[in-house]
Design a protein around this nucleic acid. Sequence first.
DNA 1: ATTCTTACA
DNA 2: TGTAAGAA
Length: 108
Amino acid sequence: MRRDGQDDGAPGPAATGRNVPFYTIGQVASLLEVPTAQLRRLDEQEIVQPERSDGNQRRYSQEEIDRLREVLQLTDEGVTLPGVRKVLELRRRVDELEHELERERGEA
DNA sequence: ATTCTTACA
DNA sequence: TGTAAGAA
């Protein structure tokens, strides 16, 4: 890939032509200062699952890097991986309910 | 050179 | 969690 993080494994004529920055596991590891093995485990534990591309290599988007920052903060505070999974699950649920309230606010 | 998976201490 | 072997 291009070391500048501009590699996008999804070709497509209709693609919105934006060069979305993607990062390899190595780049993310040095950026967040965590071992690559930990990133792979977060993937296996279904906590942060990056896209894959080329030869099945992980490609992290900025959004996933942000999610990684949240997760690392939690684990640093002592939350276990199963715990983190539940926190993220609850966070998704809260977002869902917030959107629902927003909708109801619109109709009435 | 890097990353991937699987396995082991 | 960290590290190693072997394939990609």
